[in-house]
Amino acid sequence: NDEAKKEAEKLWKNNKSEDEIKERLERAGISPDEAEQWLQELR
């Protein structure tokens, strides 16, 4: 999970869309709710 979150953070810094980041997190096995929460922390 931490690995996926690091990846999400990297994508965020590269200005990827939130949808793309969420999709990537969900593919890594993170629930949509958790993915949404993680994005809010990044904002």
Score class of each variant (00 low, 15 high):
N1M: 14
N1H: 14
N1T: 13
N1Q: 14
N1S: 12
N1A: 14
D2R: 11
D2G: 09
D2P: 08
D2I: 13
E3A: 12
E3H: 09
A4C: 15
A4W: 15
A4M: 12
A4Y: 09
K5W: 15
K5R: 11
K5H: 05
K5A: 01
K6M: 09
K6V: 07
E7R: 02
A8T: 02
A8V: 06
A8N: 03
A8G: 02
A8Y: 03
A8K: 00
E9H: 06
E9D: 04
E9T: 05
E9F: 05
E9I: 07
K10I: 12
K10P: 14
K10W: 12
K10S: 06
K10D: 15
L11V: 01
L11N: 08
W12L: 14
W12T: 14
K13Q: 14
K13F: 11
N14G: 11
N15C: 15
N15L: 06
N15F: 04
N15P: 01
K16H: 14
K16P: 04
K16T: 14
S17F: 04
S17A: 05
S17E: 04
S17K: 07
S17V: 02
S17M: 04
S17G: 06
E18V: 11
E18Y: 12
E18S: 06
D19F: 10
D19K: 13
D19A: 13
D19N: 10
D19T: 11
E20C: 13
E20V: 05
E20A: 04
I21G: 00
I21Y: 04
I21H: 01
I21L: 02
I21V: 07
K22Q: 03
K22S: 00
K22P: 00
K22G: 00
K22V: 05
K22I: 10
K22D: 00
K22W: 04
E23S: 10
E23M: 09
E23W: 00
E23Y: 00
E23P: 00
E23H: 06
R24D: 06
R24L: 15
R24G: 09
R24E: 09
R24T: 13
L25I: 02
L25M: 09
L25A: 03
E26H: 13
E26L: 14
E26R: 13
R27S: 10
R27I: 09
R27W: 06
A28N: 05
A28E: 05
G29S: 02
G29Q: 03
G29V: 01
G29Y: 01
G29R: 00
G29E: 04
I30S: 02
I30F: 11
I30Y: 07
I30R: 01
S31F: 03
S31A: 09
S31N: 08
S31D: 08
S31E: 05
S31R: 08
P32T: 09
P32D: 08
P32I: 06
P32R: 12
P32K: 12
P32F: 09
P32G: 06
D33P: 03
D33S: 10
D33I: 10
D33F: 09
D33T: 11
D33M: 12
E34Q: 13
E34I: 15
E34D: 08
E34K: 09
E34L: 15
A35C: 04
A35S: 06
A35F: 07
A35N: 02
E36T: 04
Q37N: 07
Q37E: 12
Q37P: 00
W38E: 02
W38D: 00
L39E: 02
L39S: 01
L39P: 00
L39W: 04
Q40H: 11
Q40N: 12
Q40K: 10
E41M: 08
E41T: 05
L42G: 00
L42M: 08
R43A: 08
